[in-house]
């Protein structure tokens, strides 16, 4: 797994961004960028080159699903790995995310191992 890539973490809760940053740092990732909703994330994606997006679903302004759809419609990011990390894991949510092109899905609460396993799969 290439840990030199730039990762964008998107969650409206600072707590979750901090937990994910801690896990990613333990895995060796150093190049981490944060956004607190989909709109801010999209602005960052326009200004920087991002290699992996890890996003919550339920956020104000622009949800994780809306961000995923914009990302997949973009020439620059249509193939960029997109990991959804969310408490929204009812069947319809998962179906919608898969249809929109999510790379993988982690349900909150999660362990560090669950994040690591999913990243191994999508960054192969």
């Amino acid at each position: 797994m290439d840990t030199s890539i730039k990762v964008l973490i998107v969650d409206d809760f600072a707590t979750m961004r901090r937990i994910l940053k801690n896990i990613l740092k333990q895995l060796g990732f150093k190049n981490l960028v944060e956004a607190d909703d989909g709109t801010s994330a999209w602005d960052i994606l326009q200004g920087q080159s991002i290699d992996l997006i890890i996003s919550d679903w339920n956020m104000p302004k622009m949800t994780g699903l809306e961000l995923l759809k914009k990302v997949r419609a973009s020439d620059t990011y249509k193939r960029t790995p997109f990991l959804m990390v969310t408490a929204e894991a009812q069947k319809q949510n998962v179906i919608e995310a898969v249809q929109a092109g999510v790379s993988n899905y982690v349900v909150k609460p999660f362990t560090a191992e669950a994040i690591s396993d999913k990243l191994e799969k999508i960054l192969k």
């Binding site: 809760f13 600072a14 707590t15 339920n58 969310t86 408490a87 894991a89 009812q90 349900v107 909150k108």
Partner: peptide
């Protein structure tokens, strides 16, 4: 920071219970 964490814990409890 504690308040934010309580919000996220509440969110996660709700999410798992709803599943």
């Amino acid at each position: 920071e504690i308040a934010d964490a309580v919000g996220e814990l509440t969110n996660m409890i709700s999410g798992q219970a709803r599943r």
